[in-house]
Amino acid sequence: MDQPMKRECNVWRYVDGRIKKITDIIVTEFPVTIILNEKEFATLVCSPEHIEELVIGFLASEGVINSFKDIKELTFIEATGRAIVHTHKINRWNELFHSKRYITSCCGKSRQSFYFYNDARTVKPVENIDITISIEQCFQLMQLMEESSVVFQDTGGVHNAVLCNANEIIVNRIDIGRHNALDKIYGYCLQNLITRSDKIIVFSGRISSEVLLKAAKIGCGIILSKSAPTELALRLAEELNVTTVGFLRNKSLNIYTRPDRIYVHGAQ
């Protein structure tokens, strides 16, 4: 896309009793409207990068498609912000129960007002998890994510999500919306036929119920975060067989669910 991820902005900063004019860097946001089989389906407000991955991941997360093969054609028109999608098939219940939605970049009730209905039909317990990691690997993966988060370092205005194996990053995606960052990861995996049962999600924000559900839909059994989980997220993690690790910082962490997948080096 030609749209920039960040822009310079004049600001007046107050420090130590003085105000001075400086140039700061801020993130941008961009609305993308999904036209699904000739009907307007949803508008996503996102960071202007990896839009096709976002659309694919969003449709899969919402249960509209089951795999990338379900998409017959996807065309993104940057000038109008429209993603034109034609599918070979569509899950019938989505036609009956979805209506046009405007999905903001915030992480509150704007999305939660409808996603539980869909999740009850699309999310299943994560199975066949083929990975365990050490405590030290948890710290190493978090460090790798933070080192790769250039836009966050410049602006402080985006969420970061990475898909990893036990030792390295496979794909890194950022967005102003935490749900968008995860949908981009999901879309990348579907496009590139990436196996997820042996992968880990490392995330910059708190583990909310929505984040946990998306991790389960992606098919990853371990999620690491430098922030806190919510009570509902932990209940869902127990039900969906997901290991959750939070407050991963300063050489300490909390393991909240399925601790058997995290081991102390030399004591697996």
Rank of each mutant, 00 (worst) to 15 (best):
E127Q: 15
K124Y: 07
R92G: 09
V32Q: 01
F114Q: 07
T257E: 05
I19Y: 09
A233G: 14
R18Q: 09
A83D: 04
F114T: 05
E29F: 02
Y263C: 01
F41W: 13
L236W: 06
Q143T: 10
T230R: 02
H265P: 00
G266K: 09
V162T: 15
V27F: 01
H50L: 02
H98E: 02
I135N: 01
F139V: 08
S105Y: 11
L144P: 03
T23I: 12
V151S: 10
G17Q: 12
N94K: 14
I174H: 05
G205W: 00
V158A: 06
S209I: 00
G246S: 12
T28N: 08
V85W: 05
Q153V: 12
N192T: 05
V123R: 11
K124R: 12
L96C: 05
F247E: 07
H98C: 11
R235A: 05
K20G: 02
S134D: 05
R173Q: 15
Q3C: 01
Y14P: 00
R13I: 15
E168N: 14
M142W: 13
V126C: 06
V15D: 12
D2G: 08
Q112A: 12
G157K: 03
R206Q: 10
D16A: 04
E136R: 12
L213A: 10
V27N: 02
A161V: 12
I170L: 14
R121Q: 02
T122Q: 08
E238Q: 10
G177I: 03
L141H: 07
E210V: 06
I34K: 03
N254W: 00
F76R: 12
H98M: 09
A181M: 14
N192D: 09
K251I: 01
T132D: 08
L44Y: 01
S99C: 08
F41A: 13
N241I: 07
I169Y: 07
M5T: 15
V245C: 14
T155G: 08
K109W: 07
A215K: 05
D119N: 15
F116A: 11
K124G: 04
D183V: 01
V211Q: 06
N37M: 09
S99R: 15
G63V: 10
C106W: 07
G17T: 12
T75W: 01
F58W: 13
H50Q: 09
N250A: 06
F139H: 10
I129P: 00
P48V: 03
I194M: 12
I35R: 15
L224A: 03
I174M: 13
S99I: 15
V15C: 04
N254D: 01
L54M: 07
S61F: 03
D119M: 07
K72N: 14
A237T: 07
L253A: 05
A267F: 08
E38Y: 11
E210N: 15
M142I: 13
V171N: 11
V27R: 08
L54G: 07
V85G: 09
V171A: 12
H50V: 00
K89V: 04
I51C: 00
E210R: 15
A79K: 13
Y263L: 02
C220S: 14
R82V: 14
V64C: 02
A267K: 11
